[in-house]
Design a protein around this nucleic acid. Structure first.
Lengths: 182, 182
DNA sequence: TTTAACTTTCAGTAAATTCAGAAAGTAATG
DNA sequence: CATTACTTTCTGAATTTACTGAAAGTTAAA
């Protein structure tokens, strides 16, 4: 039961992209493999499909679980664990996004907050603080905005996404309405 | 002319975050350093401030230029090149965002497009294509959306960002108005 | 209990990345 | 054209990261 050429190509691509997406090659491959495979897979099947060691698969599973990207299934009368994607594509993308925010933004935000609480003690520090303030604002906005998006219902989200170039108009629209209400 | 303790802490933090942000430690440090330093710096000043080799700085500059994050200044009667951030924080974040989209999304999008053009030749491939289709849609949406955001005027953008939890309401609003217009 | 079926951990190795410093390149000046 | 002041490229060493395969751990059934 091995992968067709096309499917293998996709899985290998996921591997190559793996590190860009925040994990490593093997984990990217595993993730891709599980996504395009209809039936949940055992660790051994994964190892065989990708020609990697069983131990490596075990570590990969752990990592994918920490990202909440896969879940475990069991079959009656079978002790093996079967792994499958934890949700729809959209959910998984969200998870990756959230996790990356945690790693790429939150630590910096916290450093900046601390720094901005201190009084600058000379001109260099003053300028630096000004710049850090800018970064801080930007990151706060991104954070707020992303949590906002996650709060929307899938339906609303869909509408928003389909809005496309209409978004500008809607902002203007909101503006007008808001003025009227004043 | 060395960094104050606080500013150094920020620069080192940028280094630690560097690889998460898509470059490496040195380049992260260089980027942070240039951002909080008011005056443009020479390659040697950068090397000294960060205690790294001159060659390393040169490679870092090249990389930062490929990201369009820094620009070169010249002083009359001085052959040295002086480096400074290429724009405001917001612009730089945009550049990073764009560049990362190019590296993290575009290649996959193109692979998926190719794959989806082919006829699936069995059940496995059919299921795989269904999943790839989902990913494709998601990535297309993200792409469209991000280019949309970049097209907005800074003013509109600001309004949009400040909208926060109001975004849901505006979508519903837009919905109502649109219905009326039907 | 013991065994069998499975999973996880871990030490050592392999591979990839990062970096310093030397060598080579470039261009302005005398 | 030689010198000086600079920049870039490149090599191999150091560091970091990823991976294998063996050993240890776990759990269920016999």
């Amino acid at each position: 039961m091995s992968l067709s050429e096309k499917n293998l190509a996709f899985v290998m691509h996921c591997g190559e992209m793996g590190s860009r997406w925040g994990f490593n090659r093997t984990i990217g491959q595993m993730c891709g493999l599980l996504i395009i495979t209809k039936e949940p897979m055992t660790a051994n099947e994964i190892a065989d499909s990708l020609s990697i060691s069983r131990g490596n698969v075990s570590m990969g599973i752990k990592e994918l679980q920490s990202w909440q990207l896969i879940k475990v299934h069991h079959k009656p009368g079978d002790r093996k664990e079967y792994y499958a994607p934890a949700g729809e594509i959209w959910d998984m993308a969200n998870r990756v996004f959230e996790e990356r925010k945690k790693r790429e933004i939150d630590p910096t935000l916290s450093l900046l907050r601390d720094n901005l609480l201190d009084e600058a003690s000379n001109d260099d520090e003053l300028y630096a603080q000004k710049q850090m303030g800018e970064i801080h604002n930007l990151l706060e906005t991104v954070t707020k905005w992303s949590s906002e998006l996650q709060r929307l219902s899938p339906e609303q989200l869909n509408k928003l996404m389909k809005l496309g170039s209409g978004i500008g108009k809607v902002i203007d629209l909101k503006d007008k309405i808001f003025k009227k209400e004043q």
